[in-house]
């Protein structure tokens, strides 16, 4: 089981850039209490690419994403087995603390969730909690992050205003900027556009494309068109299992598994 999916991954890409993986997941199972939510997931997620995760709601795609930075452990009854290697080290290693993992693996959430603080303080939040206090450094980080999230021009004159005054789409890009501020290697995105209007969605999608140069991005989406538009690789989850994982073009044009085909052709989900 382990090898088949990995092999599938290797087969489809001749691109040398993709040889490095940020995550190597082997035999991952996850339970909420007694209910198993993920079954024996094996996959390698490549570096500096956009990996989309699709599947009907309740298929475990969000759970899987939140396992990658161990946010899933916010639910106290969660149990896991198997390994997830982030750049070679197991993230479940008891010696590794979650805070350190999360400084390298950032996250953008379904609903824009800026803090009820100024735009500046929102961006400076991450650096500050990691001990960066100098105003000069923070100023630089704030500008760079907001530019990185393509929202600098819109907010540069009102950095001291409350972030709640921004529109939904702007708030979500602010949240992406906030995530960029600590310069993680990976950005996990949990349906980042599901609460946005089409124009804001487009802007966020463009941004995601740009970010790919410096970041490995894993994006959960319920929207298959979005996955097809933005991602390099796509994984299809169903009932807690990874059904298929391959190049986005391949998966959508020539799926190997019948269930994948049923889903992308809209027969269920």
């Amino acid at each position: 089981m382990n090898t088949t999916h990995v092999l599938k991954t290797e087969q489809v890409k001749p691109n040398p850039k993709e040889e490095k993986n940020v995550f190597e997941i082997a035999g991952l199972n996850l339970w909420y209490g007694n209910d198993q939510a993920l079954y024996d997931i094996n996959m390698n997620i490549p570096e500096n690419q956009i990996t989309a995760i699709i599947g009907p709601s309740g298929c475990g795609k969000s759970t899987f994403l939140k396992t990658l930075n161990r946010m899933v452990e916010m639910v106290p009854t969660v149990k896991t087995s198997g390994t997830i290697k982030y750049k070679g080290t197991n993230i479940f290693d008891p010696k590794r603390n979650v805070e350190d993992l999360r400084t390298h693996v950032g996250m953008v959430f379904q609903k824009p969730n800026p803090f009820p603080k100024s735009i500046y303080d929102n961006i400076a939040y991450g650096p500050r909690i990691h001990g960066i206090k100098k105003k000069k450094d923070l100023d630089e980080i704030v500008e760079k992050s907001l530019r990185g999230a393509a929202i600098w021009d819109e907010v540069k004159d009102r950095l001291d205003e409350n972030a709640y005054g921004l529109s939904g789409g702007q708030q979500q890009r602010l949240c992406i900027a906030r995530c960029l501020a600590i310069e993680p290697d990976v950005i996990l995105m949990d349906e980042p556009t599901s609460a946005l209007d089409p124009i804001s969605t487009l802007k966020v999608e463009e941004l995601v494309q740009e970010l790919k140069e410096n970041y490995s991005i894993i994006i959960v989406t319920h929207n298959m068109q979005q996955a097809a538009r933005v991602s390099d690789k796509t994984a299809f989850f169903l009932n807690g299992e990874l059904v298929e994982f391959s190049d986005t073009n391949t998966l959508f044009s020539n799926p190997e598994d019948q269930r994948t085909e049923d889903y992308i052709t809209g027969r269920f989900g």
């Binding site: 930075n69 946010m71 916010m74 979650v98 805070e99 350190d100 993992l101 999360r102 400084t103 950032g106 996250m107 959430f109 609903k111 969730n113 800026p114 803090f115 009820p116 603080k117 939040y125 991450g126 500050r128 909690i129 990691h130 949240c175 906030r178 995530c179 600590i182």
Partner: peptide, 26 residues
């Protein structure tokens, strides 16, 4: 809201940092 706490934890904040910087001010 739980989302605010998640945002903080997601950036590697510890529980106490999250309480002092997000939960209490709010």
């Amino acid at each position: 809201p739980n989302e605010l706490k998640e945002a903080s934890y997601g950036m590697g904040a510890t529980k106490w940092q999250t309480i002092v910087r997000v939960v209490l001010p709010a």
